[in-house]
Design a protein around this nucleic acid. Structure first.
Length: 647
RNA sequence: GCCGAUGUAGCUCAGUGGUAGAGCACUUCCUUGGUAAGGAAGAGGUCACGAGUUCAAUCCUCGUCAUCGGCUCCA
């Protein structure tokens, strides 16, 4: 007999060899029908796998993330089975579950798989699912495993098996499909009731662009058709928040083929919004002791040779700008830091001057690969809310913490609650990708880790995500469709000060090397605005809205009064406009709602007589009648509340 | 950069080997209205661009550019 401890801490005794499914049945048949897999100790197992030792056991259903993962991983196998039956001879790479569903990478040989084929595959998957095929776990020796896939002619699986340790290899069989797989899987395919293959794309084998590109098919499955329907509705809703769509509808920005791909054109309303964000940050930075600097958009090639950017990115940049002077060349600046270094070295500094904080909304240009361009989030010309802090090694932590404070203040002011704080470290396997000494890297990475620890930040550390000159703390948010973007970033850098031979005079009257902190709370104005648009679905907080109030006269008779109201609001520093078209009020309201203007003021005979306005709030409705003063006070109080976030 | 898809009016999209259509937006007129679409008329397109096939190409072929979904990359 063995002891099984359930999540409620109750201990039950079972025969050795009991399965999680048996345990579930002993509790209730209904529960047993919903068990997808089980957590045995720290591992997720098949619900049908025999247990021979005392353990904690948690039954996993669709409501558990691990249960969903099991479902989707099994769905990947089901899809592979369907594809193998429909298109014999295909070879398989890897097919994991992902955050929303699963994918499988497939070498389709000569046959081209396109979106038109997805419906056929879905259909076959559902047929197979209904057959209630069981997923059988088989332990195999390395030799057997290699023999099986050699016979099948699947070099991808062979490559994977070669890297595995003998004695720890398992296959899973379901229906006609056998796969190298660690598991776990569903008891059988009948749990999969609804299938949607969402997209098809190329993906390099093992993520290496030098290797063959396989066809990746993405999909998602559900235990109920209704859940799939709901998921699809959710996807549609998310698409409506897409900043590329809203940017066009709200007239924030545009692109022109004539100007060039990835070079955003800010329209008046977008520019208004962006300027407000910039003004806000400038105010915050002034309080925090930053000094403005301004640098040109190009720099001599020697500047970037000194900084290391030329060696690292020169070949992938916009080509140099040449001059009538033989041998002279300039680059569009890809970074502001080299310029700021030169500002620092324009005069000698005492330790008493430090930290020195140079801030600039600096526009930079980077030749991003054509396939990488994406709305405002990935562009070739953008403006960083950049600053470089030159400080002594002793000051790093305090300065770093002060920057975190600014970023948190901004995130709170804009109601960004969901973000991930990532510590981006160097990749120990590829030291050649970085400049600087190992000691300096160690010092910089340690400083960031310690700050995160001391500030009690919830962080994840990722190797290989550092900049080539130093590690970073990055603040990541997701867009409407779940793609992750880096916004704020803080970087500790020992390297550029060395390359630029920066120094200050210490209290010992000797030269010392300062440390640089690169930081950008928004990251880039373009990307930040993109994420902000998606975050608020185009309904900007009142202080940022390009148009705050629209006045809707009931008819032309009240145009004069509308103008009076408009003038009053403008005098109070409220952004207002009048809809003077000869349309009915209902129509004007509808259009204002679609333009997402926060407040609508309806004015007619009654309002004119009383000196009031009838207030309607966007997406909320009628708020009733206000005097002009009361309305203006309300707006100004709201703006103040939203903008002046203080701890 | 790679794989695949797409590119028709300002926007969202139909459509055909015989040089194009809808709805919305726009202009004009009628309407002067009370909390999410009043009515009528009009104007608007080198069918992304360049070659090729054809008597004839928006449609077929090839190339280029751009966009979309991924991959890779992201100072």
């Amino acid at each position: 007999m063995i002891n099984i401890t359930l999540p409620d801490k109750s201990v039950r005794q079972f025969e050795a060899g009991v399965t999680a499914l048996d345990v579930a049945k002993s509790i209730s048949e209904g529960l047993a029908r919903n068990v997808l897999s089980a957590k045995v100790g720290d591992e997720v197992w098949d619900a049908t796998r025999a247990i021979y030792h005392d353990t904690d056991l948690q039954l996993l259903t669709w409501n558990d993330p691990d249960g969903k993962a099991t479902m989707w991983h099994s769905s990947a196998h089901l899809m592979a089975e369907a594809i193998e039956q429909l298109y014999p001879g295909v070879k398989f790479g890897i097919g994991p579950d992902i955050e929303n569903g699963f994918y499988y990478d497939i070498d389709t040989g000569d046959r081209l798989l396109t979106e038109a084929d997805l419906a056929d595959i879905e259909k076959r998957m559902l047929e197979l699912a209904r057959e209630k095929q069981s997923y059988q776990r088989v332990e195999v020796s390395k030799e057997e495993a290699l023999k099986f896939f050699t016979a099948k002619g699947d070099e991808y699986k062979l490559e994977l098996i070669q890297e595995l340790e003998d004695g720890k290899i398992t296959f899973y069989k379901s229906g006609t499909f056998t796969d190298l797989c660690r598991g776990p899987h569903l008891p059988d395919t009948s749990f999969i009731k609804a299938v949607k293959l969402t997209s098809i794309a190329g993906a390099y084998w093992r993520g290496d662009e030098k290797r063959k590109q396989l066809t990746r098919v993405y999909g998602i499955t559900f235990p109920k058709q209704k859940e799939l329907d709901e998921y699809l509705v959710l996807l549609e809703e998310a698409k409506k928040r897409d900043h590329r769509k809203l940017g066009k509808e709200l007239e924030l920005f545009t692109f022109s083929q004539k100007v060039g791909a990835g070079l955003p054109l800010w329209l008046p309303k977008g520019a208004e919004l962006r300027e407000r964000l910039e003004q806000y940050l400038k105010k915050v930075q002034k309080e925090a002791g930053y000094m403005p600097v301004i640098t040109p958009h190009i720099g001599n090639v020697n500047l970037y040779k000194t900084s290391g950017h030329y060696e690292k990115y020169g070949a992938d940049s916009f080509r140099p700008i040449t001059t009538p002077m033989e041998g002279e060349a300039f680059f569009l600046k890809p970074m502001n830091c080299p310029h700021h270094c030169e500002i620092f070295s324009s005069k000698p500094h005492s330790y008493k001057d430090l930290p020195i904080r140079y801030a600039e909304f600096g526009t930079v240009y980077r030749y991003e690969q054509s396939g990488e361009l994406h709305g405002l989030t990935r562009v070739r010309g953008f403006t960083q809310d950049d600053a470089h802090i030159f400080c002594t090694p002793d000051q790093i932590k305090a300065e770093f913490k002060a920057v975190i404070k600014i970023i948190m203040r901004i995130f709170k002011a804009l109601d960004f609650k969901e973000f991930v704080t990532q510590i981006s470290l160097h990749d120990p396997k590829h030291p050649e990708k970085y400049i600087g000494s190992p000691e300096n890297w160690h010092k910089a990475e340690t400083a960031i880790r310690e700050v995160a620890e001391e500030e009690g930040l919830d962080t994840i550390a990722v190797e290989g995500e550092a900049a080539f000159y130093g590690p970073k703390m990055d603040f990541m948010v997701k867009d409407a469709l779940g793609r992750k973007w880096q916004l704020g970033t803080i970087q500790v850098d020992y390297n550029l000060p060395e390359r630029f031979d920066l120094s200050y005079i210490g209290s010992d009257n000797e030269k010392h090397r300062p440390v640089m902190i690169h930081r950008a709370p928004f990251g880039s104005m373009e990307r930040f605005v993109a994420v902000l648009v998606e975050h608020c679905a185009g309904k900007f907080p009142l202080w940022l809205a390009p148009e705050q109030v629209i006045i809707l006269p009931i008819s032309e008779k009240y145009q004069k009064y509308a103008e009076k109201v408009s003038q009053f609001l403008k005098n109070s520093d409220i952004r207002a406009l009048i809809d003077d078209r000869s349309e009915k009020t209902g129509r004007k309201i509808r259009d204002a709602e679609m333009r997402k203007i926060p407040f609508m003021l309806i004015v007619g005979e009654k309002e004119e007589a009383e000196g009031t306005v009838s207030v309607r709030k966007q997406s909320e409705g009628d708020l009733g009648s206000f005097t002009l003063e009361a309305f203006a006070d309300m707006i100004l109080a709201e703006v103040k509340r939203l903008q002046e976030y203080n701890e």
